[in-house]
Design a protein around this nucleic acid. Structure first.
Length: 673
RNA sequence: GCGUUCAUAGCUCAGUUGGAUAGAGCAACAGCCUUCUAAGCUGUGGGUCGGAGGUUCGAAUCCUCCUGGACGCACCA
């Protein structure tokens, strides 16, 4: 809320209290004020039918008149900020002192250097955001990208609002699928180890696909995979640590290392992480517990290295990498605790929990005793509570897993209610009872209809490459007209073929194309409300015009270019107490821009409250659009300095705010494009 | 069958704690570069807000039913 609105709210509140003896709380009086749909209705308004909730009586028009009369008598208290009050039908409309508003807002935004709207919390919440979470041994696809950018964006939004965020990548590094992968690796004798070292994830994915296919024809494969997974899980639980002891010590544990098993136990075979694939003795690995554990670790490490490379290329960072495997060790403890307390029951050899309101029982252990996704998630949530003492934990996972998360949330509700039925597990009791109400599943829709020219699964890297090439094509075409604007002054590049470019120019061309491509791809995932499925369309993603990431990036570049041509002034050397003049032809458009700037804080909070980055996408598009209209209609170069000076503040304000929002949306900001 | 979720312009979507005349972008058509980057801007056409009821002074928004789609529904994650 901007200070003008604050002033208005407290004035209205005080006058109504004084004249009518109605006390409206701050929050409610804020709600009373609406933004009119059209300029002719002023800048803020009270709709009389809202006022009716607080004891005003009569027809809407009469209420409006009563409120008007209450507010007009002491209007001089706010007439430095507001020019007039007016009745229009059932509404009381307020008109800002536009010059004052625009000057104040733009000054504030320009001088806060990208920190405009940053929140300060008296008590910051400890927020954990669990996102991306790719499956090891499966390529990083576009589905993961959506979780990744939504999660990363939310992390930045919460941080910007002043909260304490921990970003966790919870790797799918465990489960029956690894039994399959090891089975595949051990069964097939035609694996190309040279290729394996070059592109491990693709080879692993190939193995995964192949074993799936062969499994349909040979039931023995499935059996072998199950056994191998059991072997793996047994081995990981070899130290037989107790969950409760673990929870007591988790503060000092580095979860991300996933060292469930000491090197002493694993012996020689695990001693060297640097072992060459080509030197692997398959037979000795496939036949022993340690060997299979080693294979699993190897697959895991290769995949993580690959993921880290991808994250780096698109500017994604995590505070911690965790894996499901670290929870698997305790899945048996969980099962026992829940069964003993009567919270869970046995059914067809498996352990289940019935949750009120959910028809499908939650399955927490398989009949062969091995762990499941859900049981591992229970352990993970509890150990995170022990480690981080979080106030809120957000899972950014697709809508198709809604049932899973409803079950998870439901289980913690049950645990809280029945916590006293649990015996001899004080740490578990303590932490588990704190979790209810703190978990949030931030779900998002699927990406529909995306496929490569031939296949179905699109690898992220290929996707980004398509976008980069398209951006490059477009940039090269534009370079003919850009003259020196792109590479900087002095370099005549307009008609140079690519091979005559200098190394640094080539580099600039490459990085700009890449960043435009990334901007387009990421924005495409963040521009619509999370829950709606995205209808994927190559033409839309690669168009770069209209409501796109590159449009936003372009707007920033344009401002950069203009500011540098105006002389790259340091705002500190300019008159900070400038004022716009209502008579200037461009004033009304400047006012509209300032008004939009003032909405930023509300939009930021809305984005956080709804866990919805698209609120900011829409906001950024509107701001860019307002600015581009201004840019098109009015020229600055060649005007008097007196005229230009306050507009430099306006340009700086829009630039830093747009750049800040782009940053919150994980979209690269470019100097030039 | 049960559950979740969605349906707004030809296409992709905003607008959803009920409020003043339902908005953008793309595509189509007509314009704007000797002047700050045309990845831009201006204009035109395009809507029974899936359908029917209901609640309300007032419904794209809330409720019920219907139609259509997506996703999920016990030993995968």
């Amino acid at each position: 809320m901007d200070i003008f609105k604050e002033k208005l709210v407290s004035y209205i509140k005080a006058e109504i209290k004084d004249k009518k003896n109605i006390d409206i709380s701050n929050k409610e009086s804020e709600k009373l004020i609406k933004n009119p749909p059209d300029d002719s209705f002023g800048d803020y308004s009270i709709a009389s039918y809202y006022a009716a909730k607080y004891g005003f009586k009569g027809k809407p028009e009469q209420i409006a008149e009563e409120i008007y009369n209450i507010l007009i008598s002491n209007f001089d208290k706010i007439n430095d900020s507001f020019n007039k009050i007016e009745i229009k039908g059932a509404y009381v409309n307020f008109f800002l002192n536009k010059v004052k508003f625009a000057s104040h807002t733009i000054r504030k935004a320009a001088l806060s250097k990208g920190e405009y709207g940053r929140g300060v919390q008296e008590k910051p919440l400890k927020v954990i955001i669990d996102f991306s979470s790719p499956n090891i041994a499966k390529p990083f696809g576009v589905g993961h990208l959506r979780s990744t950018v939504i999660g990363m964006s939310l992390s930045k939004i919460y941080e910007f609002c002043g909260h304490d965020v921990t970003k966790i990548n919870y790797l799918g590094d465990f489960g029956t699928q690894f039994g399959k992968l090891i089975t595949a690796f051990c069964r097939y004798n035609d694996i190309d180890f040279t290729e394996f070292e070059k592109d491990p994830v693709k080879i692993l994915y190939g193995l995964y696909v192949r074993i799936h296919k062969d499994e349909l024809a040979d039931a023995a494969i499935e059996e072998e995979a199950k056994n191998r997974f059991k072997t793996l899980e047994d081995f990981i639980s070899i130290n037989k640590r107790k969950l409760d002891d673990y929870l007591g010590s988790v503060n000092n544990t580095k979860i991300e290392n996933n060292e469930h098993v000491s090197s002493k136990t694993t012996g020689e075979v695990c001693a060297s992480q640097e072992i060459k694939l080509s030197e692997i003795n398959k037979n000795s690995l496939c036949g022993t517990q340690e060997g299979q554990y080693y294979l699993w670790k190897l697959f895991r490490k290769l995949s993580i290295d690959e993921f880290k490379r991808i994250y780096k290329s698109i500017g994604i960072e995590f505070d911690a990498y965790e894996g499901e495997a670290s929870s698997a060790e305790f899945s048996n403890d969980i099962k026992e605790i829940l069964l003993e307390s009567g919270i869970a029951e046995t059914s067809e050899g498996a352990a289940i929990i019935h949750i009120k309101g959910i028809n499908t029982p939650a399955l927490i252990a398989k009949s062969d005793g091995t762990s499941l996704y859900l049981s591992r998630d229970i352990v993970t949530a509890v150990s995170r509570m022990a480690k981080y003492n979080f106030d809120k934990m957000i899972y950014v996972v697709g809508s198709e897993q809604a049932l899973h998360f409803n079950q998870l949330l439901g289980i913690f509700g049950i645990l809280k209610e029945n916590i006293n039925k649990i015996k001899d597990s004080s740490n578990f009791k303590n932490y588990a009872s704190l979790i209810d109400g703190k978990l949030v599943h931030v779900k998002f829709g699927r990406i529909i209809g995306m496929s490569t020219r031939k296949g179905n699964l699109v690898f992220l890297e290929d996707y980004l490459e398509e976008a980069r090439l398209k951006a490059k094509e477009k940039l090269e075409e534009r370079l003919k007209n850009l003259e020196d604007s792109f590479f900087g002054t002095g370099s005549v590049t307009s008609l140079k073929p690519e091979k005559e470019l200098t190394e640094s120019e080539k580099e600039q061309l490459y990085s700009t194309s890449l960043n435009v491509g990334i901007g387009a791809v990421i924005f495409n995932d963040l521009k619509t409300r999370r829950t709606t499925d995205v209808n994927f369309n190559w033409d839309n993603v690669l168009s770069f015009e209209g409501q796109t990431g590159p449009y936003l990036q372009y707007t920033v570049s344009r401002i950069n270019s203009l500011l540098s041509k105006l002389g790259e002034f340091d705002l500190n050397n300019l008159n900070k107490y400038f004022s716009f003049s209502q008579e200037d032809v461009d004033f009304n458009d400047i006012f509209l821009i300032s008004k939009h700037i003032s909405y930023f804080n509300d939009m930021l909070n809305e984005a956080m409250e709804q866990n919805e980055p698209s609120v900011l996408s829409t906001y950024a598009l509107e701001l860019a659009s307002l600015f581009n209209k201004y840019y098109q209609n009015y020229r600055l170069i060649g005007k008097d300095f007196e005229y230009i000076e306050p507009r430099i503040f306006m340009l700086s304000a829009v630039r830093s705010l747009l750049a800040a929002v782009l940053n919150l949306l994980c979209i690269p900001v470019l100097e030039r494009m």
